[in-house]
Each structure stands twice: as structure tokens, then as C-alpha cells.
Design a protein around this nucleic acid. Structure first.
Length: 565
RNA sequence: CGGGAAUUAGCUCAGCUUGGUAGAGCGCUUCGUUCGGGACGAAGAGGUCACAGGUUCAAAUCCUGCAUUCCCGACCA
């Protein structure tokens, strides 16, 4: 490809709206342009990278015998009424009506579409296990698209769905997909860590996210130093190493604690450590009043809590409503005689505490010397606390480190939610109807591009991993009016193009301009045809190299072959 | 969805407080000199100052509304 004919509008200055490095570089390098919030045009450079990533995905899916198909993005709302998600999905879904006023939508994901296909066309256990996948554009009307391709309203996703007759088949499909995903990420040059994740409100087991650690990720993952434990912060567990020395129960005592609406103020006012206080917070969970208790030095993890309560929507009760709901304003809510609560859930840290401080269910009053069971009851204990950096992991008891990261993939065993609600049954060996067991596997393809760039930055551009670089080799000719240079460059272009993707910078530009654009293209090899070409010498440089090195034209093929494998 | 900010040339921004015919740098076009990390000089092209009302003799500038975009948070099968 001649660069004079190639379209890559590079920018000298960084557009003000771009914050993430990957976003800046993809704009500056002429990879993408924004059309509207969260919606981008993929210009030739980005499209080449996308195609290469998709080709790798196709190869890896073929290896595990999963065929590709393509579902529509435009879907009838009726399909989603069937699964119950038309209501559940909320404002994130792009909804529209067609000319006959039939409710329609743009697919944010495709469980329903695939499940219906299977429901209508798969009847026997003999046809299973089977999987399908597609690489397709998804639509989600995100509240807040950001960081370029990282979170878009229109984005490209690989989504695979497995259909099994037995749990064991599902397990095998899951393991195959997991291996395929790991191969894909490796070949695409993105470093990922499989982490334990939350599978969301749809249920499902063995939920695993593939997280790419990066500077600007939207997620936080907790990892121990050996990598034997890694979890999304939403789910991360940690050991509680605090142990209170046993004490004899003392009589319950009510004390006034004016203006103590936080644990810090209360601890200071009463001159006790936060570990001697039990914090009580009222949550509204799908309309239920749930009083949640946790030791004063810990924070409540709402994702864990939602799981334990099995609620779709949970939020703290408004401070302004507290008095009406519990009889006391902030700084007094407590578990003693808490008749207002439909349920009382406590974190495990509330166990084995003696003579603690709790709210007295009266504004600005606390009880001292409260004891579990004697003074207050708990319906259920669970791990509902936020893990903190430095705490020990539950597996090898090593300190946890936190890293921001980008969720580039998510796989989990979906089970029978969709197949049951949408009637995807098959006949087993006994002629009995059973719901098909599903697995769900996704890669954010365009998001992965952001992750790759974030992980492969150089001082001036991008160092694309070899398999997905938009070009393998960039030829840079210094003087376009030098016939000798032109002859060598054109010869190299034609010989190398037989085996590699070559971009030949044949523009009448100054060297500085060419070098800077080459840094943005980020090809694994840059070949400079310059003043020493008369001696049969060119220069080669990898994006990560500080300086170029000279190579004789005779040795060039070997050097390239060694480099590109 | 809550909070904050921005919107003036293709890009980065100034001008607004104190109303008076629209500015800079970069980019683009032409010519010349340059030519190994975004050159220099000269001459040009390019703007409904997001949009809609209002105040005023006069609005980029003041007032009201609205739209879009970005940031922080919440949300995110």
C-alpha cells in the first residue's frame, strides 16, 4: 500500500476531548473519528487491526469446532418480551418503532436470538453439544460513553453461546471456550488475567472475566502477588485478621452521641476503636427494608450484598427518609429492637464481638455494651464487605494488590434461564423433555483494541503486537527525488509485499513528518531507505527501539524473517 | 440518573469581566529557500462565534431557554 493513497489523517495536537492515551493515539494516528457520543468511524488503519483481530478469533473458534454465524442487530421487541428482559433491560436499550408501529430494538446482546434459534431447530440430545458464535455490532445506549472505543454506544463484540444436554457437556464447552479465549488474547498481544467475577442478576456459575490491567480501566481487580488469587473487586474476598479478646457481657447502656453521623466521629467521641462499633445501614432492596450490619472499620460491598439478598435493585435509604422508616435519623439507626426492618443481614465481621457500640434507634443515641443474640438478632451472616488493598487473600493468604483494568472478555455458565423461559427443550435418551443448558462467552472486540493500545504505548506512538499490527512493515523513503532510493524502495515494496503487509511512505514529506506518522502506524518493523542506500545499507527499527540499526540489503530478508517469525 | 465544565477557523485556544464590523499558533493552498525526528520566509483560503428567543442604536460578549460534548460519581447480561 502506498501511503500517498492511504487515508490516515494524523493530528499534531491532541484533541481536547480525549483523556485516555489509547483514545488520543487512535485519534492522532487517524484510526478513528467520533461521529456522535460513543459512536466511531473506523478508518483504514483501525479497520485493518479489527480485521486481523477478527481473523484470529475465527481461527481460534474454528479450532474448537464452533461455527460462525451472523444474527440481525434489528430485533422485534416481542422476542425480548418472551424472556422478560424488555422491561428488565431499562434505558440502556435502543428502542424504536417501525412504520407499522411495531416495537423494535437494536440488540445490546443476543441470548434471546440464539435461544429462539435453538428452540425452533434443535430437538434431540443427539444434536448436542453444539455452540455458535458471531462477531457483530451491538448497541447499548450507555449513560456515559467514554475513553474512545473503551465504552461505546455502538461497539463490536464476539458473542458465543453453547448449548448442552448435560452439565458435563457444558463444563467441556466452557473449558474449550476458555482455552480459545486465552489463545485469542495471547495472539492479539493483550495481557489478560482471568478473574472471579459477578455474573450479574441473570445468575450463572463460574463467571470469569478476562481483565486487561491498564492505566485507565473501568474496573478494579484484586490480585495476590503470585497470581493464584484474582478477583473483580465486586467479588473479591479477603481474610479478616482482626480478633477481639473475649470479654464478659456488660449491661446495655444508652449514651447520648450528638452530631456523630459517621463512624470516625463516633469513635472519637466515645474514645473507642472503630472495631468496637457495629455500623447499621438501611438498604432498600426491591422495596424491602434490609438492615445491614458491619463492623465499624469495614465498608459494605453493594454487589455482594445484592447477591446475598438476591435483589435486582438495592440502594441505601435516603438520609431524609431515615427517620420515617426507622424512627431515628442518621446517627442513631441500630439493630436493637429493629422491628422496622424486614430482614437483618450482617457481615461476618460482626461475629465474635463483645460489648460493642450500636445505634439505639433514637436520633443521636447509641447503646454501649451491645452483644449479639442478647441485644440484637441477625437473620443471616454473609461476606458482604469490601476487600481492602493489603489484606490477605482467601486462598494462599498473601497480600492483595489492586489494579485498574479493562474487562475485555466474560464467560460464564448461563444455565437454563433463557431456555426455560423461552421453551428451548430437547428430548433426552428417555424421550423426556429437558431444558437446554447454556453457556455464554463474550469478547469486546473494539474495546480490546483500546486495551491493546493502552498496554503497548511508546513515547511517540503505538507498538502493535505483530499479529494484529495494521501493517507488518513500514518502508520510509527519505528523499523522494532520489532515483536510487526510489528504485530500492520500490523493489523492496514489491518483494516484501509477497509475504507481508507493507506500507510504503512515498509522500513528498520531510523526514520528521514521516517518522512521526510511522510511530503512529506502529508497524513492528520500520525500514528507512536513506543516504546509505548507495552502499547497499538501509536502517531497521522496532517501535520499542531507541535507535535504528543498519542492515545490509543482502541481509534484510533474514533479519525480517527472524523478527516477524 | 446526580454533580461539574465546555461549545469561537480542520486542531489547540484567546477575545466575554467593561457590548462598537472576528483573533493567534498549528494545519491547508501557492511561490521560494530547505531536506534524517512534525523547517523558514512571503502571499492566500477558511468562521451563521452550537442553536432559539430577549435586552440594546448596536450582542461572540448581557439575560432566558435549549442542544451537544467532555469530566467525576451512580449504573453497567
Amino acid at each position: 500500500m502506498r501511503q500517498s493513497k492511504f487515508f490516515m489523517p494524523t493530528l499534531k495536537e491532541t484533541p481536547a476531548d480525549a483523556v485516555a492515551k489509547s483514545h488520543q493515539l487512535m485519534l492522532r494516528g487517524g484510526y478513528i473519528r467520533q461521529v456522535t457520543a460513543g459512536v466511531y468511524s473506523y478508518l483504514p488503519l483501525a479497520y485493518r487491526v479489527l480485521n486481523k483481530a477478527e481473523k484470529i478469533m475465527e481461527e481460534e473458534m474454528a479450532k474448537i469446532n464452533v461455527p460462525e454465524c451472523l444474527m440481525p442487530a434489528l430485533l422485534p421487541a416481542s422476542l425480548w418480551e418472551e424472556s422478560g428482559r424488555m422491561k428488565k433491560y431499562g434505558p440502556e436499550m435502543f428502542r424504536l418503532n417501525d412504520r407499522h408501529d411495531r416495537p423494535s430494538l437494536l440488540g445490546p446482546t443476543h441470548e434471546e436470538t440464539f435461544t429462539e434459534l435453538i428452540a425452533k431447530n434443535l430437538k434431540s440430545y443427539k444434536q448436542m453439544p453444539i455452540s455458535l458464535y458471531q462477531i457483530q455490532t451491538k448497541y447499548r445506549d450507555e449513560n456515559r460513553p467514554r475513553f474512545g472505543l473503551l465504552r461505546g454506544r455502538e461497539f463490536i463484540m464476539l458473542d458465543a453461546y453453547s448449548f448442552a444436554a448435560t452439565r458435563q457437556q457444558l463444563d467441556e464447552q466452557f473449558d474449550d471456550e476458555k482455552q480459545a479465549f486465552e489463545n485469542i488474547f495471547k495472539r492479539c498481544g493483550v495481557t489478560v488475567r482471568p478473574v472471579i467475577a459477578d455474573s450479574g442478576t441473570m445468575g450463572g456459575k463460574d463467571s470469569t472475566e478476562f481483565q486487561a490491567p491498564a492505566e485507565i480501566g473501568e474496573d478494579t481487580i484484586a490480585v495476590n502477588e503470585t497470581g493464584t488469587y484474582a478477583a473483580n473487586l465486586e467479588m473479591a474476598q479477603s481474610l479478616d485478621d482482626f480478633k477481639q479478646e473475649p470479654e464478659d457481657p456488660q449491661p446495655l447502656e444508652k449514651v447520648a452521641t450528638p452530631n456523630c453521623d459517621s463512624i470516625e466521629k463516633l469513635a472519637k467521641f466515645l474514645n473507642v476503636s472503630a472495631t468496637r462499633i457495629v455500623k447499621s445501614i438501611l438498604y432498600i432492596a426491591d422495596g424491602q427494608k434490609v438492615l445491614v450490619l458491619i463492623r465499624g472499620d469495614k465498608q459494605i460491598n453493594e454487589a455482594k450484598l445484592a447477591h446475598v439478598i438476591d435483589a435486582d435493585d438495592i440502594h441505601e435509604a435516603q438520609t431524609s427518609d431515615l427517620e420515617a422508616l426507622t424512627g431515628s435519623a442518621k446517627g442513631g439507626v441500630g439493630p436493637v429492637k429493629a422491628d422496622f426492618a424486614d430482614r437483618i443481614i450482617a457481615d461476618e465481621t460482626v461475629k465474635n464481638l463483645y460489648n460493642v457500640v450500636v445505634g439505639a434507634s433514637e436520633t443521636d443515641y447509641q447503646f454501649k455494651n451491645a452483644n449479639l443474640d442478647r441485644d440484637f438478632k441477625v437473620d443471616e451472616f454473609a461476606d458482604i464487605r469490601v476487600a481492602n488493598e493489603g489484606e490477605l487473600d482467601p486462598v494462599d493468604h498473601l497480600p492483595l494488590k489492586f489494579t485498574t483494568s479493562i474487562e475485555v472478555g466474560h464467560i460464564f455458565k448461563l444455565g437454563t434461564y433463557y431456555t426455560k423461559t423461552m421453551g428451548a427443550d430437547f428430548l433426552d435418551q428417555n424421550g423426556k423433555a429437558q431444558p437446554v443448558i447454556m453457556g455464554s462467552y463474550g469478547i469486546g472486540v473494539t474495546r480490546m483494541l483500546s486495551a491493546i493500545v493502552e498496554q503497548n504505548l511508546t513515547d511517540h506512538g503505538i507498538a502493535w503486537p505483530k499479529e494484529i499490527a495494521p501493517f507488518d512493515i513500514q518502508l520510509v523513503q527519505m528523499k523522494m527525488n532520489d532515483d536510487q532510493q526510489t528504485a530500492v524502495a520500490e523493489k523492496l515494496e514489491s518483494s516484501l509485499s509477497a509475504k507481508y503487509d507493507v506500507l510504503y511512505d512515498d509522500r513528498k514529506e520531510r523526514p520528521g513528518v514521516k517518522f512521526n506518522d510511522a510511530d503512529l502506524v506502529g508497524a513492528p518493523i520500520r525500514i528507512t531507505i536513506g543516504r546509505k542506500v548507495g552502499d547497499g545499507i538501509v536502517e531497521v527499527k522496532r517501535p520499542s527501539d531507541e535507535k535504528a540499526q543498519e542492515v545490509a540489503l543482502n541481509d534484510l530478508d533474514a533479519w525480517i524473517a527472524k523478527e516477524l517469525g
